[in-house]
């Protein structure tokens, strides 16, 4: 195949795919545990412990996908890494403070004196909220080409609210899967409300990105692309209907439906992400720098590629092991 003749061509594509995959896995996995944090104020004390128990064994590894994604950007596209992160300097700093707060609050709320627990609960919520809002803000600004004007900031604020709603939504779907009784019933209510935010967010991004960029407009609305791509919005709409219907049937006896919202939400997130990725390819910095211009030397990428081929299956294997060990309804977190 001609594509594989030149490593300077196929390695950047492979790494863009890997980075995209990491970001998607991050958005789904840390999305649900950030979302659980965002939902914290709506729950009572017992429910909070149960909510934390449902993400306890996973959140560390979930955040590692962000490290991998940012690491791949750093190592595979060093020129883009600097451009993007200096443009997003302040939101990145706020994101990091948020992640620090929630990550440690997780441990402190269980280990500090009981009188401090409410304070760490607040830190867990505020940290999760900060991380969700700033990620949404960065997404919006990225779509707008990393420019700061009144319009782009307004759009970024909209995406930040929508992504936060999306995380709260997938967090609620996770709780439907992992909890039972009253908390599960409340999670269904939260999911119904979050779904509106998800739909608004996907609609806003789908409308805005072709309007901002004629290039993206052409990629979607010229013939035959518009026909080939038609299944994407249609399937997404079908998934939203499925979510709506399944949430109306929940909570159900016998738990036949409880896995449907989380799985459907994951597929919906994946489709939305695929749409974005299609819009921006081959650019890594929108309209300014392609993955080929930003890529590291092929020999360095190749060294990482070889390692990835061996290690990634192992990572996926033991991640599956972990989710298998802690399958079923969340129980109290105990060290013994």
């Amino acid at each position: 195949m001609a594509l594989f003749d030149d490593p300077a061509v196929w390695l950047p594509i492979v790494f863009a795919l890997l980075m995209g995959l990491s970001i998607l896995i991050y958005v789904v996995l840390d999305g649900f545990d950030l979302g659980v944090g965002v939902l914290f104020p709506f729950a009572d004390a017992d429910e909070r412990d149960r909510m934390v128990a449902s993400i306890g064994p996973f959140w560390d590894a979930n955040e590692t996908w962000l490290v991998l994604a940012i690491g791949l950007l750093l190592v595979a596209f060093p020129a883009a890494h600097g451009t993007i992160l200096t443009a997003l300097y302040l939101p990145v700093a706020l994101l990091l403070i948020g992640l620090i707060l929630r990550g440690v609050a997780f441990e402190f709320r269980a280990k500090a004196p009981a009188s401090h627990k409410p304070l760490w609960n607040v830190a867990f919520f505020v940290g999760s909220l900060m991380a969700s809002l700033t990620q949404g803000f960065m997404l919006g600004l990225y779509i707008m080409g990393l420019e700061y004007t009144a319009e782009t900031i307004a759009f970024a604020l909209l995406t930040s609210v929508c992504l936060t709603a999306g995380y709260a939504f997938i967090g609620a779907c996770w709780l439907i899967l992992k909890t039972e009784g009253r908390l599960q019933a409340r999670a269904v209510v939260w999911a119904k409300r979050g779904l509106a935010g998800v739909v608004a967010g996907i609609a806003a991004v789908s409308l805005a990105s072709p309007l901002v960029s004629p290039r993206i407009f052409d990629k979607w609305f010229s013939v035959p692309e518009v026909l080939l791509l038609a299944p994407l919005p249609l399937v997404s709409a079908g998934l939203v209907v499925l979510l709506f219907v399944s949430l109306r049937h929940l909570p159900d006896d016998g738990e036949r439906w409880s896995w449907i919202p989380f799985v459907t939400a994951t597929v919906l997130f994946a489709l939305a992400f695929a749409g974005l990725a299609y819009s921006f390819y081959p650019y890594v910095v929108p309209e300014r720098m392609t993955i080929y211009e930003a890529a590291s030397a092929p020999e360095s990428l190749f060294i990482i590629f070889v390692g990835t081929c061996f290690v990634l299956p192992a990572i996926i294997g033991y991640t599956v092991l972990s989710y298998t060990v802690f399958r079923g309804k969340a129980r109290e977190l105990r060290y013994d």
Partner: peptide
Amino acid sequence: AVFLGIMLFGF
């Protein structure tokens, strides 16, 4: 990160 979950809560 993955085995920490099992080490802490999997006893």
